[in-house]
Amino acid sequence: MTNGHVLHQLSAWAGQDLLPKDQDLVEAHLAVCVGCRAEAERLREARAWLQEAMDPPFEATDHAALQAAILARVPQEPAPRRIARLRLRALGLTAALLLLALWPGLRRGLSPAPASPKVASHPEASVFPSLPPRLEAVQRKLRALPKPPEARSRVAPKLAPIQVARLEFQTSDPSIRIIWLANDAATSAPNPSLLEAP
């Protein structure tokens, strides 16, 4: 109640939407308060007018015409079928289990692939664990590259100095040359081209 009055509760009271004890409190107040009682009467009157005004105006012929129109259109609709809820649930459960089983693979697929130059920019990492002897020298060259500065920021790669090492190998196929661009900047941008015609 506000200052003992119940004006703000009256519309809920009119719909009997108050708790029983609040409903009783409002009624007790209305018995003694002329102002609130007048407001309650105004609400009651408005509800009565609403019910009178919103009495549906349809006659039997309206109902018959509508029913006929509905039933004339129903045959054009496909026959309804009960949804097999158990089957739906089993299908959902199977899909969830499948997703769960595939999730590690999906995550790997979604995460950006580690770019080879990034790996090459850390010489202490074993970049070529089982390379032929000819490439051992390359690995040594990579290790000889200057170490990247620590705590390089990913958000501002343009500010960091970028050192690029270009290493080329001729494969047994004369039309294929492998070019390694060893970039010490941490980046997920794809290597522009690993294969280049001579």
Partner: peptide, 27 residues
């Protein structure tokens, strides 16, 4: 149907629209 048509009319306040709404509801 009488209840559904009446409800539609009370919500829409228009006889023709109420008929359309009731028909659509049944379909």
């Amino acid at each position: 149907e009488p209840r559904i048509l009446g409800l539609a009319w009370r919500i829409l306040g228009d006889r023709d629209l109420a008929r359309d709404a009731a028909q659509e509801a049944y379909l």
